[in-house]
Amino acid sequence: MVTEEKRQEILGKLKNAVIQYDEDTAKETSKEALEIGVNANDAIFNGLVSGMEEVGRLFEAQEYFVPELLMCADALYAGLDILKPHVKQLDLGVKGSVVIGTVEGDVHDIGKNIVKMMFDVAGFTVYDLGRDVPLDKFVEEQLRTDSDLVCLSAMMTTTMVGMKKVIDNLKAKNPNVKIMIGGAPVSQDIAEKWGADGYAKDANNALKDAINMISSLKKLKEEAEAKKNS
């Protein structure tokens, strides 16, 4: 059993590795965590994700910009790749699968990839359609996978309008599916007008929204554990 002091040291190292975009340390520390018996979930959520939360704050404060964010994401993935196989399936009471992609005509996928990363972290099954995705493909993939959530991304005003069609088609085929839209030109107004269930307006907001989602999942998990222990 690992001591609380050692656990804190490992979590701190993971957190800092993400913040300082240090892939090597993220890898080594993740291996060390497993070797000495730190729980993989613990290492992911209280180490790596906790680091990403701080990165989100730095991004918002304009100390970090997109290049730093991408490098931090690389460090997170470096750790996640090692830790994830050791995660026991979380029982969150939600199925947690998501179809994600950038709409046709748009080849920008950085915002989409950041959101995808947070879904990966949360243990969702992610069906990533990539970028420049024909609109019908979203509907097909949702029906094929019966996913709970569809995330549509567009970086440009000129491609954003394609989202409305996807939303209409998805809602017609499956009224229960939740749809989140994101990207620079999207607004709360548009999300409401087009019938999307959620929206994130830029990389920062996408990250924040995704983090909020993870935080609420963490809370659910803690509540479940508290119930089990009581």
Binding site: G105, D132, M156, T158, G162
Partner: peptide, 16 residues
């Protein structure tokens, strides 16, 4: 480049 000639909708060309 892709000009999306197959679509009726307006899409701006992209690099493929």
């Amino acid at each position: 480049i892709n000009v999306y000639a197959h679509l009726e909708d307006i899409l701006y060309p992209t690099i493929k």
